[in-house]
């Protein structure tokens, strides 16, 4: 994973709440067995509408998405993160994210920044006034900047550190392999096993 510090790019206002992962990527695109090439599937249903924000030339090349409350609800499909990433998004700003989506984002280097609803609305207003305005998400000092709007954002220390260092989770966990093996020696014998099949 690449190291992340500061992201600057065109901000895309997605003025909707409860954007579930079925809208981010519909289920028919989940049949693939690869991990890339999902850019065309992103918001596929909504992109049928010529008025949809990504169909407007000023926003089509956006890399920072600014969405309403409860972004990424529903299905655990990591494909939602892959689709955002493949389209070119590097960060999503919202007042609240669904837990699983936020976890998945952290694994794939997609920065999720939590700001108050008032900040989201202020950024939307900036982008309405001047479509194509860039938004900066600074992971080092934890700030979001767009035009005259500047706000701190929330992200947990551990995810921030991992993103800034570009670290692989499995590699980090395997530092504790001895502790895992030790834990396994104390597991009660009656705990379930799938093998042998009974």
């Amino acid at each position: 994973m690449d190291k992340l510090t500061v992201i600057t790019g065109v901000g895309v206002p997605l003025k909707r709440t409860n954007v579930d992962t079925d809208q981010i990527i519909p289920a028919e695109f989940l049949k693939r067995v690869t991990k890339t090439g999902f850019e065309d599937a992103l918001f596929q249903r909504w992109r049928q509408d010529p008025e949809f924000v990504l169909n407007q030339p000023a926003f089509a090349q956006g890399t920072v998405l600014i969405a309403g409350l409860d972004f990424g609800t529903g299905s655990s499909r990591e494909h939602a993160v892959w689709a955002l990433r493949d389209y070119g998004f590097q960060a999503v700003i919202a007042p609240r994210f669904a837990d699983i989506f936020r976890g998945n984002s952290g694994k794939q280097g997609l920065l999720t920044a939590v700001v108050p609803e008032s900040v989201v609305e202020a950024i939307w207003a900036e982008l309405d006034a001047a479509p194509g305005t860039e938004v900066t998400v600074n992971l080092v000092d934890r700030t979001v900047t767009c035009g005259s709007v500047i706000s701190p954002f929330d992200i947990d220390d551990y995810t921030r550190w991992r993103l800034m260092e570009g670290l692989d989770d499995i590699g980090l966990t395997l530092r504790h392999e001895a502790a895992i093996t030790e834990f396994e020696t104390h597991r009660e014998s009656w705990r379930p096993t799938t093998l042998p099949a009974r």
């Binding site: 990591e78 998945n104 966990t173 504790h176």
Partner: peptide, 15 residues
């Protein structure tokens, strides 16, 4: 529920 990166993580480490 977990995402695919976590599926890989659990397959590899059981944690």
């Amino acid at each position: 529920g977990i995402g695919t990166s976590e599926v890989e993580h659990v397959l590899a480490t059981q944690t």
